[in-house]
């Protein structure tokens, strides 16, 4: 496996700093090295003070979301050499409180998201003809959203409206509307039917572009709008 050196320009910020800055590191990578692995190598071999967050290494946990070369990605599944740039710039997500280096405080994101009351699992749409075991009503799967916050970082409306509920929470509400499973839907629709709710979206749809789980937040926001219009016209029976 061939190896080559790649320069990493890494965003640095510690509590008390007057302003952030960038540090440059050189890392030897191969065809399989991910950005997360390179950052771990920097932390291990060059600068132990570099703060990063990660867990699963396979795009399931959503904790390693960051901006690589100006685009929101999960660092664990972003191949360094496939980026095709001699210097890789790594920054934390935008529109979230910055804790240190590449780590942001996801607390405000979770607070908003949790108000959607989205369950962790959903009825599976895959393999509809698959045999279901006795006593099991239907196959289930985990919800698609991994709560990584990439969509919120990429949204230009969140950038200028701190009160906007954001694409992740709105998409979660649409999922609950689709499959309420005991959750009261009207209060949720009242929550999103507001100036800073689903009507605030201006259709940049970057959320759907950066989403690593095919949640399609932009599409879900538009579906929410349609549902609200249907209900306003008395056309919805849900």
């Amino acid at each position: 496996m061939s190896e080559q050196k790649v320069t990493f320009r890494v965003f640095r910020y510690k509590q008390g700093d007057t302003a952030p800055h960038y540090d440059t590191f050189t890392v030897t990578v191969n065809e399989r090295t991910t950005v997360l692995e390179a950052l771990q190598a920097i932390r291990r071999d060059q600068d132990g003070t570099l703060v990063i967050r990660h867990s699963c290494h396979h795009a399931s946990c959503g904790t390693c979301g960051m901006r690589v070369n100006g685009k929101e990605v999960l660092a664990c599944v972003t191949n360094v050499l496939e980026l095709g740039t001699p210097t890789v710039t790594v920054e934390p997500l935008q529109n979230a409180p910055l804790i240190s280096d590449l780590v942001v405080d996801m607390g405000p994101f979770y607070e908003t998201f949790s108000q959607a009351h989205l369950p962790f699992v959903r009825r599976s749409e895959y393999l509809p003809d698959a045999e279901v075991a006795e006593g099991v009503p239907f196959h289930m799967r985990f919800e698609s959203c991994i709560e990584c916050g990439l969509c919120v970082s990429a949204c230009p409306v969140v950038a200028s409206d701190a009160e906007y509920l954001g694409p992740a929470a709105l998409a979660a509400v649409w999922r609950v509307v689709q499959e309420p499973r005991g959750t009261e839907v009207p209060p949720l629709l009242d929550w999103v039917n507001s100036e800073h709710g689903c009507w605030r979206c201006h259709v940049a749809l970057e959320c759907s572009e950066v989403c690593p789980s095919n949640v399609d937040p932009g599409g879900n926001i538009m579906a929410l709008r349609q549902e609200l219009v249907r209900r306003a016209l008395g056309l919805s029976h849900g």
Partner: peptide, 11 residues
């Protein structure tokens, strides 16, 4: 914690 929000420049 400072929030890195670009405001209208983000547009």
């Amino acid at each position: 914690h400072p929030v890195r929000r670009r405001g209208w420049k983000g547009w």
